[in-house]
Design a protein around this nucleic acid. Structure first.
Lengths: 197, 197
DNA sequence: TCAAAAAACTAACAGCCGTTAGTTTTAATA
DNA sequence: TATTAAAACTAACGGCTGTTAGTTTTTTGA
């Protein structure tokens, strides 16, 4: 009979995933070895395989957790009735908060996803495409409503997303300015850049 | 007696560096093997070592070429007498042009530099710090002159630089919109975001 | 307390890595 | 054309990779 997994088991798995996120962020996915990871967890490398299937699975878990969150968020924002520019602002603030609170996971899912293996690679690519497409539609709506400057919506989305998600010095800024101030700074630059005055 | 290196020799070395840039961009530095590179160049792996010293040296060359360009450019911009916001615009346009014309090298130097080995790693880090510092000073000048909104200059610099240099889909946008239009879109969003109206 | 399951361990695998040594072929120079 | 340097080749190295097999230890549940 299959036993219910104990909380100890679950939390160990989570420790591994958390530690993998940190290492993948620090050294990059390819440059991180299972022996590196094992050392951080305090165990020999083969023991990891009692909790996970493969190195690749770790990346997959990290990426799909993040992907799922953004899929949920954009669906939520789409349904609210508000000006497009405010929807954009809502999404930006969400991105910033996620970066502040789940920095390693966000960073890894943003920059190391290309080391996913098929079929997960294709899935993740599709998920990203889908997210960008829906974000682009919101921006286009804002342009049509003259809330947002006339510009190429695709370009705008790439600029916005990359401006936030690919900063590898969050810790440095967050130490210097408060996270609230940081959020306001970013939103100011990017939203005022879009807004049609 | 040392012979003068033939142009054939020089161009071969350049071919290797160019091909390395493409591969490091495509697969990442760590995931690229010397055998991969050799295959692209049309040669066996050990033959590469007649032209270069190590894999690491390739990354160093790519990064320091890019770094040098930006060091020269910011020194040039600093010496021109013009409003700070226009200096920022000049730098942004330069970044965009470099991304359009030397995409692989820019991408690699922006995202793979962390795999440099000391002492090059420290050098490069210092060079980046220096560049950001001088860029920050220009933005601070703009804030003091009330050309630029009151915000944290450090944050602003990170946002600006990352917005442009970490886009991994340049080819996709450049195919859709002309490079001139692309430049104007980006400058519009980012400069209007900074400008104090 | 005893049986069973979970999770740790050691040993080892096949394969790839960057690179060197030594040799042969190609190309340039006198 | 003969000499010499440059650049290609093959073979091989020590080391690291993710992972499996098999075994021992620890923890769990009755």
């Amino acid at each position: 009979m299959a036993r219910i997994k104990s909380t100890e088991n679950n939390s160990k798995r989570e420790v591994i995933i958390k530690e993998a996120s940190k290492l993948f962020k620090e050294k990059g996915f390819t440059a991180t070895s299972m022996r590196d990871l094992a050392e951080r967890v305090g165990v020999e490398a083969p023991s990891l395989y009692n909790h996970i299937q493969s190195k690749s699975e770790l990346l997959k878990i990290i990426c799909s957790n993040v992907g799922e969150k953004f899929a949920v968020k954009i669906a939520e924002v789409e349904q609210i009735e508000m000006p497009a520019i405010e929807k954009v602002e809502k999404l930006l603030r969400f991105h910033i908060q996620e970066m502040i609170n789940y920095y390693e996971e966000e960073y890894v899912s943003g920059r190391e996803w290309r080391y996913l293996k098929d079929p997960y690679l294709s899935e993740y690519r599709e998920q990203r495409r889908n997210y960008r497409k829906r974000f682009t539609a919101i921006i286009q709506e804002g342009i049509d409503q003259k809330e947002i400057k006339k510009l190429d919506a695709n370009t705008a989305v790439l600029i916005l997303l990359n401006a936030i998600t690919s900063i590898d010095q969050w810790h440095r800024i967050v130490h210097k300015v408060s996270s609230k101030e940081l959020e306001e700074n970013i939103v100011t630059i990017l939203i005022e850049g879009l807004r049609n005055n």
